[in-house]
């Protein structure tokens, strides 16, 4: 039992779960977005990029998931790590920012979102597995801030996160320059995410991009699709009669207001 006077959050159950896991008991496995997410600042704004693969261990759980989360009209957040944590954290901050916008009648600032995120994650001492790249444009111009699960933040002109971060950073470290043009910057973001997609097994499928400028935000869903499925050689349609019918039953809805003639069969299993 936790003493009633103990202040702050407590993570006793996390310790308990670690102990249980070390003794061989089965614990919940989370969907991880073993991911490549990137962000950079260019001449007129900020660009975020992400791949679209979600994995459960060695299996691809979702081939086209969305890792770019909308916080406000002028702010997006790319998330890596535990899928549920990035989703719920960004949703909560988005809702808080909207209320903040309504209360103050001002466009929310990027630092406000960054403070909210880092304070929330710090409170949970790393147990919320959200690795975030926050990008936006406010009265202070384009801004890019990363937030790590323990709550630390970094402000950089270009950054990469997730399991493909090394591959993507290799591209940025060789090709990024200040004050890039829009098209060049989008191409560089796409190239960095593609490096993650092709060289990191945790990342894959398509490239999502969002471009945020002073008075415009363009969400380019599936901006690049370099991994389309190839058509099948054969049809795998089962011939009629391949599946045995074990039981046949016809059931009807009973509805007091309906005349018996209007009654429609609910389930009809056909016999071949």
């Amino acid at each position: 039992m936790v003493p009633a006077n103990r202040r702050g959050f407590h993570f006793d159950n996390c310790k308990r779960n670690e102990l249980l896991e070390s003794k061989g008991s089965i614990t919940a496995k989370f969907t991880k977005t073993g991911t490549t997410i990137v962000g950079l600042i260019y001449k007129d704004g900020v660009i975020l990029g992400a791949d679209t693969r979600a994995t459960e261990g060695p299996i691809v759980a979702d081939k086209n998931c969305e890792k770019l989360h909308r916080l406000t009209e002028n702010m997006y957040c790319a998330g890596a790590g535990t899928a549920a944590d990035t989703e719920y954290t960004t949703n909560m901050i988005a809702s808080k920012l909207e209320l903040h916008r309504l209360n103050t009648n001002r466009q929310p600032r990027v630092v406000t979102a960054a403070s909210m995120l880092s304070q929330h994650l710090f409170q949970y001492q790393g147990h919320i597995g959200a690795n975030l790249i926050l990008g936006g444009y406010d009265i202070n111009g384009p801004q890019l801030i990363s937030v790590m699960p323990h709550g630390s933040t970094d402000k950089l002109p270009y950054m990469t996160l997730g399991s493909g971060m090394l591959a993507a950073m290799a591209v940025f470290e060789t090709k990024w320059k200040p004050n890039m043009e829009r098209d060049d910057a989008i191409a560089l973001v796409t190239e960095a995410v593609s490096a993650g997609i092709f060289n990191d097994l945790g990342s894959g499928s398509n490239v999502d991009v969002v471009v945020i400028t002073k008075d415009r935000t363009d969400y380019l869903r599936n901006h690049s699709k370099p991994n389309q499925r190839v058509p099948k050689q054969t049809s795998y349609k089962y011939p009629p009669g391949s599946v045995s019918v074990i039981r046949k039953e016809v059931r009807y809805h009973s509805n007091a207001n309906q005349s018996p003639a209007a009654v429609v069969p609910e389930v009809v299993m056909s016999e071949s």
């Binding site: 880092s118 304070q119 710090f122 790393g126 790590m148 709550g151 630390s152 933040t153």
Partner: peptide, 8 residues
Amino acid sequence: GSAADTQA
């Protein structure tokens, strides 16, 4: 030390 702790 820890970036998160010292920043906070």
